[in-house]
């Protein structure tokens, strides 16, 4: 870009072009949706199979994976924040939204007895909030559809026994996290090629 005298029309075109470039920036957060999608899928299916087909005393053992996943998400998210070349106003909101939802979800597990162990439906409702809002902030409809799925399955699962809730949870993360996560990854790759 060279320095030259601008006409008012050229100034306006330049402003529109630059604002358009900033708005087209696409944040790839797929790693978090894929990580949590697979961790929750593994936790819920392990819980279902161990609870129904074995005498193992701790069918919930698979959920232990959520602890390292939470630590990884925090460390990776903070590092990514430091390294990213741009920060949109929504990025900060996005980060805090998921950190707080994560803390609330872990708190619910800790006080599960007080909640009549309805942790799965409540977790799905929390995930619905995070996913729908993230989808709106990123203007990414698959996440919003996934969030709606979390909401519907979360409400339905209040009526079901714990074992069936686990199967619903697996379906919900498939539609709510994994499918949008892979679509987001593909979109980010296409976007990177177009921007290059």
């Amino acid at each position: 870009m060279e320095e030259k005298e601008l006409s008012p029309e050229e100034s306006l075109d330049l402003i529109q072009d630059m604002i358009g470039r900033a708005r087209r920036r696409f944040t790839d957060n797929s790693i978090f949706f894929l990580l949590w999608g697979w961790v929750v899928m593994l936790g819920s299916l392990t819980h279902y199979f161990l609870g129904n087909f074995t005498d193992y005393e701790m069918p919930y053992i698979g959920w232990v994976l959520t602890v390292p996943a939470f630590i990884f998400s925090m460390v990776y998210g903070a590092r990514k924040g430091r390294q990213q070349t741009t920060r949109l106003y929504t990025d900060r909101v996005y980060g805090w939204l998921w950190v707080m939802l994560g803390v609330v979800m872990f708190t619910m597990v800790f006080y599960g007895e007080n909640l009549n162990w309805q942790i799965v439906p409540l977790t799905m409702l929390m995930a619905a909030v995070g996913t729908v809002v993230s989808g709106a902030m990123m203007k990414f409809r698959p996440l919003q559809i996934g969030g709606a799925c979390f909401l519907i399955l979360g409400i339905v699962s209040f009526q079901l026994d714990e074992s069936t809730q686990m199967l619903l949870m697996a379906v919900a993360v498939l539609i709510g996290y994994l499918i949008p996560g892979y679509m987001m990854k593909t979109k980010a790759k296409e976007h990177a090629v177009q921007s290059a």
């Binding site: 870009m1 060279e2 320095e3 030259k4 601008l6 050229e10 100034s11 330049l14 402003i15 072009d17 630059m18 604002i19 470039r21 900033a22 708005r23 920036r25 741009t86 920060r87 949109l88 106003y89 990025d91 900060r92």
Partner: peptide, 14 residues
């Protein structure tokens, strides 16, 4: 041109 471009970019992001 360049200063206006920089400001137009920064106005849209943190």
């Amino acid at each position: 041109q360049l200063r206006l471009a920089v400001m137009s970019l920064l106005i849209s992001m943190e």
